[in-house]
Design a protein around this nucleic acid. Structure first.
Length: 708
RNA sequence: GGUUCCAUAGCUCAACUGGAUAGAGCAACUGCCUUCUAAGCAGUAGGUUGAAGGUUCGAGUCCUUCUGGAAUCACCA
């Protein structure tokens, strides 16, 4: 229909004004105005030298005369041509849609796409951030399938390296042979416990080293490291100076303004000042959350500045700590263990396999619980040696070069990166980037994919840019199909999630909590009476997952989002359960219709439409377009975006809810044939809406219950 | 310091990529369950889109500057 209108408008321009138009853009008419499609005329006014009202009238008349489907038009706000379609168009469109079982499945693209997501570390359990990643990846895969692609879901598990050895070592030293069975702990959580344990022990060991450094004794470090430490310390000293500079202003401002703040603020301020101005996150939180008067602003601003400076010092100190960590006895043992692992020492490998097995059991349980799966697993333990032949390839092509110490580097265009990228250490071992290069080749070898989507957080934007650039420079055939679906971090009200500060929301815990809420709410409504416990459990599961997935997917993936455990998982309004509930209503209608003995298989005949009916049909008709948008068929930059589907599903559910409240479906005013036909039509409309809701939610990885 | 991203109602998010009177939900307030599932529907209130300039028929969206926030820039992964 849209293209018919576009062509007709093009023809109109040519016939009426002898003016060639390449592209006509139509948009759905806004709800407040009469019409189905809107043509924005502004850009054409000059070319055809017409006033907006005249042009609108001429084009409108032309459409009405030439297209039987167009029932009318209006020109609004000096430039918007709103085109109305006859009700018959909508009725026919719906009749066709209702027959189409494959509605929502776009024609085959004859292309293969790989979506890589999840990519966990085997040293700690999954948390909220992973959930966003998993839900996004799974949903994008479903959307691409609906858009006609063949999809391979891949998971690249980070199962080797220093961090894995940390938990292994901690387990050997402090584990006393504990197992998931003996401790009653899920495997991934058990390993996570030892990773934390390692960190704790290392912190103890690093203290004396740091004390030594503070006294100017760098004897433990190599000369290069010593240089770095000096650099860091110089930076710290410089920042320290700035702090002192700023601090000088503090007493005066304090004397002037502090009394104007509330008691909470004053208390926190005093505590902060007395603790030698050490960053107090509670104080910062208080400042960020509060509003201040204009007069108070200078003091607040100064405090902010000082806190920020202290944060910078913290970062620099962190760098020194990092170097010091490597000098601890524990880290020495870890390095030894890694070398043993790489040398395939039987005991080390056996331990590694045993512990990884536990983690995989744990992960698989969580994957199963959240309803995601994979077609292809990759393990870094198997891919970390890949990429070496790529090094040769790049050296031959003159894209890489070798430094005197034997390390290999990649040249990069200045606009991509000012620094060259290390690919091979001087000791000949490969880095993260090298592995990823190799894995990219491997993926292509395994599946001949046309497109490859990496679902990775935006903290790795730079890494992906460099990775893709190198592959492009190397002339890899799949390079143009690479796409980094860069999603924003999930923030908590307390700020960023940090495992060290214990502010991580664990995935398994969260699932349990949300399920409990779903159960309480469902039970309070009391609609599940007479069902078995197993049936109820299943419904709690579906609703809680729906609520959780919806909250994480309704936000534009690119944007960072805030997650408040107490408020974020909504069950009302713009939320998963609301959409699910409207599906349930359509099912309820069907059940009731069957019990009334209404034959829903036969067709129906209506001549006109209630406004809510046409609105529903219009929305239903947009479904396939929404899939195309969400899959990036129109514009890849806009695509890979489940939030478009979530928004659509919510709109459809909301519209159905209005229709449901306004239009009696089964109840008829009389027994006339017309009323009977109307009833059958509304049942069909209801059924189709339910189908589309189910399909749309399916693209988000959300299931629907039959009752709730 | 360089680069990139972000700032919209009290809160969480939208706004079809430059279009109409900036929309939803939550929270607050008013109505509506003897009738198809009220996790609902209808309504009220809530905005100088961080600030100031600019580009044009038209700016939340593009450009410049400023303010505030985040990420990143390793022989870590």
């Amino acid at each position: 229909m849209e293209t018919t209108l576009q062509n007709a408008l093009k023809a109109a321009f040519e016939e009426l004004f002898n003016h060639q138009v390449d592209e006509i853009e139509l948009q759905p008419t806004r709800k407040e105005f009469e019409g189905a499609y809107t043509f924005v005329m502004f850009s054409f006014l000059k070319a055809v030298r017409q006033k907006p009202e005249e042009l609108g009238q001429k084009l409108g008349d032309y459409l009405v005369q030439n297209l039987p489907e167009v029932s009318g038009y209006n020109v609004a706000n000096k430039g918007f041509l709103n085109i109305s379609l006859s009700e018959k168009v909508w009725i026919d469109a719906f009749a066709q849609m209702a027959k189409n079982e494959n509605f929502g499945q776009l024609p085959a693209q004859n292309q293969k796409v790989m979506v890589e997501y999840s990519s966990p570390n085997t040293n700690k359990p999954l948390h909220l951030g992973h959930l966003r990643n998993n839900f996004l990846g799974y949903s994008v895969a479903k959307i691409l399938e609906a858009a006609g692609y063949e999809v391979v879901k891949a998971n690249l598990v980070n199962d080797r390296g220093v961090h894995i050895c940390k938990s292994m070592l901690a387990y050997v030293k402090f584990g006393h042979g504990e197992t998931p069975e003996s401790s009653g702990t899920k495997g991934d959580h058990l390993i996570g416990k030892y990773y934390v344990e390692f960190d704790k022990r290392m912190k103890e060991q690093v203290k004396p080293i740091l004390a030594q450094v503070a006294q100017g004794d760098f004897s433990l470090f190599t000369s290069a490291e010593q240089q770095n430490i000096v650099t860091y310390q110089t930076k710290i000293a410089k920042i320290q100076q700035s702090v002192e500079q700023e601090q000088k202003n503090l007493p005066a401002l304090k004397g002037q303004l502090l009394a104007s703040f509330d008691q909470d603020f004053q208390d926190l301020f005093n505590e902060w000042e007395n603790s030698n101005l050490i960053t107090s996150s509670t104080f910062k939180k208080h400042i960020d959350g509060a509003t201040f008067g204009k007069k108070q602003a200078p003091l607040v601003k100064l405090i902010r500045k000082i806190i920020k400076l202290y944060n910078s010092i913290g970062k620099e100190e962190g760098n020194i700590k990092q170097l010091a960590n490597n000098k601890t006895a524990l880290m020495g043992e870890v390095t030894q263990m890694l070398q043993k692992w790489e040398a395939k020492d039987p005991d080390t490998i056996a331990l590694w396999k045993k512990m990884n097995g536990w983690v995989y059991d744990g992960f698989n349980a969580t994957y199963k619980a959240i309803g995601v799966d994979f077609d292809q697993m990759y393990y870094e333990s198997e891919t970390y040696l890949l990429g070496k032949e790529i090094i040769d390839d790049g050296l031959n092509q003159g894209l890489f070069y070798t430094k005197p110490d034997g390390s290999v580097w990649s040249k990069l265009p200045a606009d991509v990166s000012p620094n060259d990228k290390l690919l091979l250490r001087s000791n000949g071992t490969s880095v993260y980037m090298t592995q990823d290069l190799g894995t990219a080749d491997e993926k292509y070898k395994d599946h001949q994919i046309d497109k490859s989507i990496y679902v990775i957080g935006n903290e790795q934007d730079y890494h992906c840019v460099v990775l893709f650039q190198i592959l492009k420079d190397l002339g890899r055939p799949y390079a143009k199909g690479l796409y980094h679906l860069s999603y924003g971090m999930v923030d908590l009200p307390t700020g960023k999630m940090k495992s060290r500060e214990g502010t991580v929301i664990d995935a398994d815990d969260l699932l349990l909590e949300v399920k409990k809420t779903a159960q309480d709410r469902t039970d309070a409504l009391g609609k599940l009476e007479g069902m078995s416990d197993a049936e109820k459990e299943e419904i709690y599961r579906i609703i809680s997952l729906g609520a959780l997935k919806y909250t994480l997917l309704r936000v534009d993936p690119k944007k960072r989002m805030l997650f408040d455990k107490n408020e974020s998982v909504d069950f009302q309004g713009d939320a998963g359960p609301f959409v699910q509930m409207n599906y349930v209503r359509t099912r309820s209608i069907l059940r009731k219709a069957a019990s009334l003995g209404i034959d829903t298989t036969k067709g129906w005949q209506v001549a006109d439409l209630h406004p809510m009916e046409s609105e529903l049909i219009m929305l239903l008709q947009q479904y396939e377009q929404v899939i195309a948008d969400a899959a990036g068929l129109v514009d890849p930059k806009m695509g890979y975006n489940p939030s478009l589907i979530a928004q659509y599903a919510y709109n459809l559910a909301k519209t159905y809810s209005q229709f449901f409240a306004e239009c009696p479906i089964l109840k008829t005013p009389d027994q006339s044939a017309e009323s009977m036909e109307r009833r059958k039509f509304r049942i069909a409309l209801s059924t189709k809406t339910g189908e589309v809701i189910k399909k749309a939610l399916g693209l988000l990885g959300i299931e629907v219950p039959e009752r709730m």
